[in-house]
């Protein structure tokens, strides 16, 4: 019984974080700020779902199930790289940031 609560907690927490990250895409005003959503929120969002999955499949009696951790590992390697490349491309195109951004590198 407590396992079900734990699993639902992790999955719900992960889903909420992913949802907030997506809301960030619509609410934040410029490209550089919108990058923060997917770079961070997806990692913890997916991390929460993974934790739920590990607990669910490990407690069904088929032994420990850890291969979900690889998803987290690959995501941790790829998410910052894609965010970095997207930011670098935006800088290259001199994509404008909101007025109040300080230290714009192309001025």
């Amino acid at each position: 019984m407590w396992v079900e609560y734990l699993v639902s907690f992790f999955i719900l927490a992960g889903a909420i974080i992913a949802l907030i990250g997506s809301i960030g895409l619509t609410r934040l005003p410029d490209f550089y700020m919108r990058l923060h959503g997917p770079a961070k929120a997806t990692t913890l969002g997916v991390g929460g779902v993974i934790a739920g999955s590990v607990i669910f499949f490990s407690t069904r009696g088929d032994g420990l199930s850890l291969h979900e951790l690889l998803i987290a590992l690959f995501l941790f390697i790829t998410a910052p790289v894609s965010a970095h490349i997207a930011a670098k491309a935006a800088l290259h195109l001199k994509l404008d940031a909101v007025e109040r951004t300080r230290n714009k590198p192309w001025r």
């Binding site: 990058l35 923060h36 998410a79």
Partner: peptide
């Protein structure tokens, strides 16, 4: 370092 910075509080490495 750039990856860690992108994953942690409030910062994304850009260049």
């Amino acid at each position: 370092l750039a990856s860690i910075i992108s994953l942690t509080p409030g910062t994304v490495s850009a260049d």
